[in-house]
């Protein structure tokens, strides 16, 4: 059902539609501003690009670390958890002090 506020709303909408704001000044040189911002955005290097670019470096470091660890400190046991699994204190001690290979 239409009421007083419906009429008032319609009147307000009609008035608002009739008002033509002067936007010429706001639009002046707008294309220059947009193109400048696009250029700025294109030149800016996004932060995630640095992460992707650093991936090979981290991969090389990881490979070198693995090679060094295997070359200079070979594993003393095929099963490093064996002493713990057997719960043998002596075996543990020997393992920790390097007396048992």
């Amino acid at each position: 059902m239409k009421d007083l506020y419906d009429d008032k709303l319609n009147e307000l909408f009609k008035t608002a539609r009739e008002i033509k704001p002067d936007l010429d000044k706001a639009q002046m040189h707008f294309e220059t501003r947009v193109m400048a911002r696009i250029k700025e955005l294109k030149n800016a290097k996004p932060w995630y690009l640095f992460i992707w670019r650093s991936v090979p470096l981290f991969a090389i470091i990881a490979i070198i670390s693995t090679i060094i660890s295997f070359t200079f400190a070979p594993a003393t046991s095929a099963d490093p958890l064996a002493p713990l699994m057997h719960q043998d204190d002596q075996v543990n001690a020997n393992y920790l002090f390097g007396e048992q290979q």
């Binding site: 009147e11 307000l12 909408f13 008035t15 608002a16 009739e18 008002i19």
Partner: peptide, 8 residues
């Protein structure tokens, strides 16, 4: 009219 638009 501008006041009406502001109000809206």
């Amino acid at each position: 009219a501008e006041e009406a638009t502001d109000f809206l």
